[in-house]
Each structure stands twice: as structure tokens, then as C-alpha cells.
Design a protein around this nucleic acid. Structure first.
Length: 230
DNA sequence: ACATTAATTATGT
DNA sequence: ACATAATTAATGT
């Protein structure tokens, strides 16, 4: 459950960059840390928000379920970022479900501490609102994408976002650092796993991409950018 | 231009 | 051996 945390490991995070060592220590001392296997639900949509979270390792999938029961992935959270920050949105309930996309490690605090953190640690406040803004931005962009772009471009852009957020360099190219299925990609892009499968197969033939089961490596990011272009 | 259906094959425990 | 993932072709809107 709880675990001794070395603040020197956490200090480099943007979230803490403007804080003193002592302040970081104070924040960490109130945190509960937890490890979770892949595909674990951290919290569910609509639940009353008891805690907010900081992802230390792994990645989180933010999922919504439409009225007719379709799964939609609205966002991915990379390591180092806050999530489940309902209070920053002025809500007392989580707006979406958070699932671990890979084995993950995260800290959490009771939301009762939120306003104190904002008040006491100015760097904390500015940094969180920056990431909130970035996410709103990204979701807006995706809404526009959905209605204007064709599936190839949407999938191209989705892959590019993933490699930018959580890409890992390998000899073959940039690999998405967590297990991802075609079903997952289809849920991010509003298509079907079949279309994703066909496209990836085609791209594979062109040497654009290299994929096996639950793994996608982007070999030629630039050509993908071109595809996502207009 | 893309979804749906369905049948087939590959892959990981 | 079994379940889950991926491919592929055929048909539908």
C-alpha cells in the first residue's frame, strides 16, 4: 500500500518543478501509492470523486461509454501527469472511467487536500491548469477531426499522438510503450477494428509501420504526418 | 468511403 | 487446449 518515496525521483516532474524540496516532501508524505496490473479500473465514470491521482509509471486510458453502450477512448494519460482531478473541473464526480493500459504505478490523495495544495503551492496550481488546458484542447481537436477528417487521417494522427506522448525509441522506429490492440485504436478513432487492421496491414507493407500483437512501432513518422495532413 | 458479418488463422497463457 | 487478437473476403449502406 504505502511506500517510501524518494523526492529526488519525483522532483524532476513538471508538476513539482517550481517547488522546494520540503514542500515536495510534505506532499509526498500525504500520498498513498499503489501498483496495478494492466486493464485495472482505477475509478469509474459517475463515481463520487474521493481522491485525485498522479501517474508515476505506465499509462492510463480514459474511457467513456456512450448511451448505446459503445466504448470510446477520449484520452491517454502518460506517466508524470495528474488524472482524476475532478475538483479542478469543479465536479464532485469523475467524468470518465480510468483504466490502466499497462502495469502502472500511481500516487493518490484525498480530494479534501486539493484546495490546500492549490493555495499553498503556486507551481502546483499553474502546472495543473496548464495540463487541464492542454487536455481540453486535445479533446476539442479530436471532435473537429472526427467530423472533418477521413479515417486514414484520423488513425494516422492517433498513432502520432501516441508516439509523441509515450513513444519509446527502438532500432526499428518509435514504439508505443504500452500494449495496444486494433480494438483500442478503433475506440480512439471512432471506427472498427477491421478498418484499423486493414490499414495497419497496408502501412506495414509500405514499411510505414511495424506491428505485431498488441505492439505498434512507427517506422516512418514523417510519412504518417503527411497522411494526417489535410 | 466505410461498416457489418462471418469465417479463418495466429498468438499468448 | 483455450481464449483472445488479427487477418481477410464478402456483402451491405
Amino acid at each position: 500500500m504505502s511506500l517510501k518515496l524518494d523526492e529526488s525521483l519525483l522532483a524532476p516532474l513538471p508538476l513539482f518543478s517550481l517547488l522546494e524540496r520540503g514542500q515536495i516532501r510534505a506532499i509526498l508524505d500525504q500520498a498513498v501509492s499503489r501498483r496495478a496490473d494492466a486493464e485495472t479500473v482505477v475509478f469509474g465514470e459517475g463515481e463520487t470523486a474521493e481522491r485525485f491521482y498522479l501517474l508515476l509509471d505506465g499509462t492510463i486510458r480514459v474511457v467513456k461509454v456512450t448511451p448505446d453502450g459503445e466504448q470510446v477512448t477520449s484520452l491517454h494519460i502518460p506517466a508524470g501527469e495528474l488524472f482524476g482531478i475532478a475538483p479542478a473541473l469543479g465536479r464532485d464526480t469523475y467524468p470518465a472511467t480510468a483504466v490502466t493500459a499497462s502495469e502502472s504505478l500511481f500516487l493518490s490523495w484525498p480530494i479534501s487536500l486539493w484546495h490546500g495544495f492549490i493555495a499553498d503551492y503556486p507551481g502546483f496550481a499553474t502546472q495543473t491548469y496548464k495540463t487541464v488546458g492542454a487536455r481540453v484542447n486535445e479533446m476539442n481537436n479530436r471532435i473537429v477531426e472526427m467530423s472533418t477528417q477521413h479515417v486514414e487521417q484520423r488513425i494516422a494522427r492517433a498513432l502520432l499522438r501516441l508516439v509523441n506522448q509515450s513513444g519509446r525509441r527502438t532500432d526499428a522506429g518509435i514504439e508505443i510503450s504500452f500494449p495496444i490492440t486494433r480494438q483500442d485504436v478503433s475506440e480512439m478513432t471512432g471506427t472498427t477494428l477491421h478498418t484499423v487492421s486493414r490499414l495497419l496491414s497496408a502501412w506495414e507493407k509500405d514499411g510505414l509501420v511495424n506491428s505485431k500483437r498488441k505492439k505498434i512501432v512507427v517506422c516512418d513518422p514523417h510519412r504518417l504526418v503527411v497522411l494526417g495532413g489535410t
